[in-house]
Amino acid sequence: MKILELERVESGYGAVAVLRQVSLHVNVGEIVTLIGANGAGKSTLLMTLFGQPRAVGGRILLDGVDITQRATHQLAGLGMALVPEGRRIFPGMTVAENLAMGAVSVPEVAAPEVARVLERVLGLFPILDERAGQRAGTLSGGEQQMLAIGRAMMSRPRVLLLDEPSLGLAPLVIQKIFAVLREIAAEGTTLFLVEQNANQALRLANRGYVLVNGEIRMEGSGEALLADPEVRRAYLGGH
């Protein structure tokens, strides 16, 4: 069953078209990755799902329902959460407040559930518990990434979208973050992972898409793409 589906989506900034007729889908419980070079339109694709910028053509379906024209702030409540490019944590707020912001889309009645999710997030990232009262802007890059992932989890998303969670981090931290992503996926959350770090992403993913100049150029299982000579040459530094 498809949880997220894009049908010939077109998007861009003003006159600049970035995405051209992008069609892809993510099934419930899957880990799907989108790889592509810098400037291919990966981040634009994720932001377009949230209407920032809004798609100018095609349709975006969540659980089969057309959400293309939905207001940005209504989407978190429908079960999508984004860990955006550059983390975009709130630097002037404490770690605890950042996590609380992740749950704003959860209705008041679910407060006990929020407390349980918070406990789960702090269990996955104990460092966030230690730093709970600290201003988020003072965290290291890896800690900020963990905070961004934790914040996204606070709304109990059914599909978690991640934009280059490994960017600029030390290999050890990347491993830790990917281990947590595996755990989140194992609990039943669907993952849609955008990465330049194609090797790591394709190893984690069930399926993958390759985005080139705003168009889907290839798709296949994680192993198939890993083995593909063209993918190896362009994204994995192979020969």
């Binding site: 940005t72 978190a76 912001m101 704003v104 709304s155």
Partner: peptide, 11 residues
């Protein structure tokens, strides 16, 4: 602090 991010979270 970040208007777009706040709206992504549901504000």
């Amino acid at each position: 602090q970040d208007r777009v991010m706040a709206s992504l979270l549901g504000v």
